[in-house]
Design a protein around this nucleic acid. Structure first.
Lengths: 142, 142
DNA sequence: CTGATCTACAACCATTTGGTTGTAGAATAG
DNA sequence: CTATTCTACAACCAAATGGTTGTAGATCAG
């Protein structure tokens, strides 16, 4: 099944590395470039106003985040995009989106349930009661 | 039209802040929680094994990234999810996805272009001229 | 009013990050 | 072979990050 690919769970550290890797303009540019074509590390380094070692470090960050991979070819190291990493990031944000949509529906439900007495609850304050019920999930347990 | 909102361009710093904000487990959890319900800053602080000030800083990071916003209510500060920020992150990753999908076609084009390799290559004969795109290259002199 | 909460912010500290230079090993070119 | 290129990695540095404690201003409860 194709779903098998989607089953890959990411732990917190994976996600930290993934988003951290995206949190730099040079690294996002590298991802774009190696997605479009093939570059050696020195080929990439020639594109930016920084040292070879700096670019090397950026590639290493992307590699640890599973966003790119390297393949040795002769004395060069070819950097390639790792599509899976990209997809994982997208799926995570999609999850947030789903949660958000569910929240909208739940609010609609709550409004429908509690809309019996009066319409005093304005839209601006409508979400207030969402926080009074099951929001206090767990405290520090003293 | 609603579409106008989606057209908002993000500069490099915006994206740096956006992904940086996601690159922390506590902050991702905060985003999840405030997406589902409403929390005050101290209400959030009670959930994590860290000081109030630390949580306050996390919320500030999320706020600078336009992922949440705060609204004063009495002596409390209510933290709410900012759906736009989320959507922006999702759309950016979607762009990478689009680029990836176009890659196959691009390669075909490149193979056609490479038949006429006239352009003087970069300082170092970069791996390929696959990099000659519209991506801004902030290169030094050299 | 007094006291308890909630928030903001400053100062501080340890670690990470993003950059540098320098050294050294492999693979290629001549 | 020698010289050059490409890579890896160590050592170092400044700035940012993620945490702390402490102080102080608002706001609410009694």
């Amino acid at each position: 099944m194709v779903v098998d690919q989607l089953r890959t769970q990411l732990n917190d550290d994976d996600l930290d590395r993934l988003f951290q890797a995206f949190a730099d303009t040079t690294r996002r540019d590298i991802v774009r470039r190696v997605t479009v074509g093939e570059y050696s590390v020195s080929g990439l380094a020639a594109l930016y106003a920084m040292s070879f070692a700096a670019v090397q470090k950026h590639v290493a960050v992307l590699e640890r985040a599973s966003l790119v991979s390297k393949e040795k070819r002769g004395r060069e190291q070819i950097v390639r995009a790792n599509h899976d990493g990209l997809q994982r990031a997208r799926r995570l944000l999609d999850e947030y989106e789903v949660i958000w949509r569910q929240r909208a529906e739940r609010i609609a439900d709550l409004l429908a349930e509690t809309a019996a007495p009066n319409q005093a609850t304005q839209a601006s304050k409508a979400t207030r009661k969402a926080g009074t019920s099951k929001l206090k999930v767990r405290k520090g347990s003293s």
